[in-house]
């Protein structure tokens, strides 16, 4: 809205290119690799195996998969111009608060809207696969989120910029240099707006994206609550201690 305070177009173009390139370099799977036709959908026998797993075993499997995905998000963040210039406290705050949200955003690349399945453990899996976790109230919104985001049919560049915008949220608690994060997020927002405009997107898509930003926050709040209640609580301290990835504990512990 205020052209005078906007960063120069060159800066924005450079940032946009940098973020899109970083996204492609760190997206874990290429879009072609994720084609549902390349992978099996979970069959009844597999489904039984997943559903018969103990809650602990299923949480452990998910913790490992989430941690793998988060490591790519950390790498994504590191390559975004400006992120490594933030103080280390803020880098950690942003990653702790936002890395899971970016994993959820990236999930739309691995979601098959034909049968409401998502790529998990080298197969396309429906929500029933996660039943043993014992938290349908978390799984349903995650699938709903993937469905909503997929329906926008975002390009890879749009997903990259949207992910960066979510990650650089200046409203996270405990940031020490909030203004620096705000400036970076604002630049990413303008870059995303420019890209959407260039791609001749309907103006409504921006509104839809903001709603989804809010939604990712809600999912994470729900995620953390459930994790605290079922996994990192006193229920399975031994499992968490010995079998959960250390990075997972750092990210979601407290």
């Amino acid at each position: 809205s205020n052209r005078d305070s906007s960063p120069p177009d060159n800066d924005l173009e450079h940032l946009s290119e940098n973020i899109c390139k970083s996204h492609m370099e760190t997206c874990q799977y290429l879009r072609e690799e994720l084609q549902p036709s390349n992978w099996q959908t979970v069959l009844q026998t597999d489904l039984d195996t997943y559903q018969k797993k103990s809650q602990e075993d299923m949480w452990q499997l998910c913790a490992v998969k989430v941690t793998e995905a988060v490591q790519y998000v950390v790498e994504f963040a590191k390559r975004i111009d400006g992120f490594m210039e933030l103080c280390q406290n803020d880098q950690i705050v942003l990653l702790k608060a936002g890395s899971l949200e970016v994993v959820f955003v990236r999930m739309c690349r691995a979601y098959n809207s034909q049968n409401n399945t998502v790529f998990f453990d080298s197969k396309y899996a429906g929500s029933e696969v996660f039943k043993a976790l014992g938290c349908d109230d978390l799984i349903s919104p995650v699938f709903e989120f993937a469905k909503s985001l997929t329906s926008l049919q975002l390009s890879e560049d749009e997903i990259g910029l949207f992910s960066a915008y979510v990650l650089m949220s200046a409203d996270r608690s405990w940031l020490q240099e909030k203004t620096r994060v705000e400036k970076l997020q604002q630049k990413i927002k303008i870059a995303l707006q420019n890209l959407l405009q260039k791609n001749q997107r309907d103006e409504g898509i921006l509104f839809h994206l903001w709603i989804l930003v809010i939604f990712t926050h809600l999912i994470t709040v729900s995620q953390v609550k459930i994790l605290l209640r079922t996994v990192l609580s006193a229920l399975y301290p031994e499992t968490v201690h010995t079998r959960f990835p250390p990075l997972y504990k750092e990210l979601f512990g407290s």
Partner: peptide, 20 residues
């Protein structure tokens, strides 16, 4: 720092996704 030592390490490493 001790509380987030893995994150610190990841942030300091010049790792690439293939190393992950």
């Amino acid at each position: 720092k001790e509380k987030h030592k893995i994150l610190h390490r990841l942030l300091q490493n010049s790792s690439s996704p293939v190393d992950l």
